[in-house]
Design a protein around this nucleic acid. Structure first.
Length: 155
DNA sequence: GCCAACGTTGGC
DNA sequence: GCCAACGTTGGC
């Protein structure tokens, strides 16, 4: 079992949006980066724990705990008109895949400055300079540290 | 809105 | 296969 962090822009899909979904589950559509796709397609397993991260918003940070809820399957939005359409993708040979993600629980927001304040988390991919990858592995130690952090009051 | 960092594209 | 140009991400 691996642990993951998945970024979403809350303007598009927030933790609260997912909490309102049937079964609290959403297809993680819109990933258009090969490395992130490969994580979903080749490395995720149903049940893997996921941090739900809010990005490109006033308070970026980890906002929820979720789990991988399905194997990867073709991302429907690549075939639909809109910002995620990909003319080079076909049903026979789809380029983009997604898993379903199910929200387990909302947590207090553990913001970026708070994450950066802990030396235990200094190696997290998300905190590295220039990192833009929307899906990144998280180590077990990082996972457990952040879960414990979220259980404490906001600093 | 700015801009650093990065991924992708396409000409050669 | 190189690499410049371009587009995107995402924090600030």
């Amino acid at each position: 079992m691996r642990h993951w962090l998945m970024k979403s822009e809350p303007d598009e899909v927030s933790v609260d949006d997912v909490a309102a979904m049937p079964k609290k589950t959403v297809p993680w559509f819109g990933v258009r980066n090969y490395q992130a796709r490969n994580f979903m397609r080749d490395h995720m397993q149903v049940g893997d724990p996921v941090f739900f991260y809010h990005s490109s918003c006033p308070e970026p940070g980890i906002a929820g705990i979720a789990r991988v809820a399905s194997p990867a399957y073709p991302d429907a939005t690549q075939f639909e008109k809109g910002k995620y359409f990909d003319a080079k993708s076909t049903h026979e040979n789809p380029r983009w895949m997604n898993v379903d993600v199910q929200l387990v629980k909302k947590i207090r927001l553990v913001g970026l400055p708070e994450l950066r304040a802990h030396p235990e988390l200094a190696d997290m991919t998300i905190l590295q300079r220039g990192n833009r990858l929307s899906i990144t592995p998280v180590t077990k130690a990082e996972w457990e540290f952040i879960v414990a952090l979220a259980a404490k009051p906001a600093p």
